[in-house]
Every structure is written in structure tokens, then in C-alpha cells.
């Protein structure tokens, strides 16, 4: 096997991993703060993907430009979902929240899929722009433009999120609520509002991921669970409480997948993540970058 092939595979691993990382950011945020596991996170990614797709298909809006609609739209969807469903769950104690959210998430996943088949049709779609097949070539390596954009967007996003969480009052309130909601409310923080903002933000992040999926790969009504699973593996790998850690864990998963495909053949690709999932859970349950007490 030539070093060229290895290098190219590792590069694609990093690029697909960046997308895994972005897909996991919202799930991690919501899980870390609300202690609810939103299994329907992948459905929100799908919805974001379709929103971008239709904006491109019907109105010829560039997918990257469509983010100015898609991200607020998913923020709104998150707000509605929170009001309608998750706000009721977070009244329960934290152990109960996970169980209840799993059930609700599964329900939402089924509903999301069915509605998507009904209204978006079951065909696989992708956004094919003029620059979709463009790529940079250097030292014999091929770097597809739209995939590279995921890495750049991911890095910028993590920096912005980090600044938001550490420099703004809302961000600090979110971190405080994540650690201890009771003490947060005793500090004068409106915990319910913090939960709402966090959930909506998590949904908005899913929308952004969805746009990238529809540009880089393809979307169909049943992609939701696949992306939830990827995001979940990344969250377990990273642990809670660190946005850069989550993104990095996504990149690691991408690298692990492509390198295992090189070593054992691509049929084992999907299994690698799940094996990692089990190993990490059994030897380091707080994840690679997680807080000890999270």
C-alpha cells in the first residue's frame, strides 16, 4: 500500500470526522446541560439538510447562504420542541430525564421519518452546486472543496462556541446550569429559560450539520438514526463539557473509520465506531476529554 493512499485516506478521515464532530456538538450541549439524550438529534440534522436542499432546489439559494435561514429555522423548531415536549421532561429528576427523553426521542424519530417520506419523498437527494466537484490538489492529494469547508466551519464554530460559553453571561449561565441547576437558580439564573436557549441552540447546530451533510453526502428521510448514532459515539468518546473535545473526538472517529477501512477492508468501517464506543464506556466512562464530575 503506497503512502499516498494512506495519506489520502487519513485526509478523508479528518474531513468526514469534522462533520461527525459538528453533528455531535448540539447533542453534547443538550445532553450536558439538560441531561436529556435527544435521540431525534439526527432528525433535526435531516430537517436542516432538507431545508437547505429545498432552498437550493426551489429558489437557487446557495447552501452556505441558506444557513441564514436554516439555522434560525432550526432554532425555532428547537424552541417549539422544547416547549411541547422536553420542557416537561426536565421537571423530573436527572435519572428520570434520560429514560423519558429516550422514549420521546424514539417517538420523534419515527414521526420525523414518516413525515419526511410523506412530504419530502423517499428519494436520496443532494445539493449539486457548480463547485460541488471542485477540489484542491497539492502534493498529489485531493482535497474536495465542500468537504474542506466542513473542517473550516467546524473549527470556526468551536472557537465561537468556546467564546460564547466562557465570555458571555448566557454562556456562563449555561455552564453553571450544566453543573448544578439548583445552585444556578439560587444565583438568580432562570434555569427554564437557560434550558430553552440551550435546546434551541443544539437544534440550530443540528441544522448547520444538516446543510453540510446535504452538500457533502446526501440526504434521505431515513438518515436521522445514522447521524444520531455517529453523534452519540462522538459524545461518548469525548465525554461532556468540552466543545473542542467533542469536535476533536469527531475527527478521531473519522480517522479511526478510514484507517480501519484501510487495514481490514471497508466492510468493517461502521463497526469501528461501535467498538470504540464500548471500549471507552468500559475503561473511561467520562470520555477522553470529559469533566471528571460530569
Amino acid at each position: 500500500m503506497s503512502t499516498h493512499i494512506i495519506a489520502q485516506s487519513l485526509l478523508s478521515g479528518i474531513l468526514v470526522g469534522a462533520l461527525y464532530g459538528i453533528a455531535a456538538l448540539g447533542l453534547s450541549l443538550v445532553f450536558g446541560v439538560l441531561k436529556v439524550l435527544n435521540i431525534a438529534h439526527g432528525e433535526l440534522i435531516m430537517l436542516g439538510g432538507y431545508a437547505s436542499f429545498w432552498a437550493f432546489n426551489k429558489a437557487e439559494v446557495d447552501p452556505y447562504v441558506s444557513l441564514v435561514i436554516v439555522v434560525p429555522l432550526l432554532f425555532l423548531v428547537g424552541t417549539i420542541l422544547h416547549f411541547g415536549l422536553f420542557a416537561h421532561i426536565v421537571r423530573a429528576n436527572e435519572e428520570q430525564r434520560i429514560k423519558n427523553s429516550l422514549l420521546i426521542g424514539f417517538g420523534l424519530t419515527l414521526i420525523g421519518q414518516t413525515l419526511a417520506i410523506r412530504y419530502f419523498e423517499a428519494d436520496e437527494r443532494r445539493i449539486a452546486t457548480e463547485y460541488s466537484t471542485d477540489a484542491w490538489e497539492f502534493i498529489g492529494l485531493r482535497l474536495p472543496l465542500v468537504r474542506a469547508s466542513g473542517l473550516v466551519i467546524g473549527i470556526v464554530l468551536v472557537i465561537l462556541l468556546q467564546l460564547f460559553m466562557h465570555r458571555t453571561y448566557i454562556g456562563k449561565a449555561i455552564r453553571a446550569t450544566a453543573e448544578d441547576w439548583q445552585t444556578a437558580s439560587l444565583s438568580g439564573i432562570n434555569v427554564r429559560l437557560t434550558y430553552l436557549i440551550t435546546f434551541a441552540l443544539g437544534s440550530a447546530l443540528a441544522g448547520l450539520a444538516g446543510m453540510l451533510v446535504s452538500v457533502q453526502y446526501s440526504i434521505s428521510p431515513n438518515i436521522g438514526l445514522t447521524w444520531t448514532l455517529k453523534a452519540l459515539i462522538v459524545v461518548v468518546l469525548a465525554g461532556l463539557g468540552s466543545m473542542p473535545g467533542t469536535f476533536l473526538a469527531g475527527v478521531l472517529l473519522g480517522l479511526a473509520e478510514t484507517s480501519s477501512a484501510l487495514a481490514f477492508g471497508s466492510q468493517y468501517r461502521e463497526m469501528v465506531g461501535l467498538v470504540l464506543f464500548v471500549i471507552i464506556l468500559s475503561i473511561r466512562s467520562q470520555g477522553l476529554f470529559g469533566e471528571q464530575n460530569a
Binding site: 456562563k172 439560587l186 439564573i189 463539557g241 469533566e291
Partner: peptide, 28 residues
């Protein structure tokens, strides 16, 4: 304002951030 039995400080936040969060309400 209540200082609870469990102290009510955020161990993952810095001392300064803890103090800043004390002043979270609009009056402070």
C-alpha cells in the same frame, strides 16, 4: 440570597466566574 448547606459554588468554574455569576441578577 441563600447560601445553601452545600455551599453553592460551581466547582468546574473559576473563582472569578463564580463571583461574576453571583451578580447575575439585573439589580447587581
Amino acid at each position: 440570597f441563600l447560601v445553601p448547606e452545600w455551599r453553592g459554588t460551581f466547582s468546574t468554574l473559576s473563582v472569578l466566574e463564580n463571583l461574576e455569576l453571583g451578580a447575575f441578577s439585573s439589580r447587581a
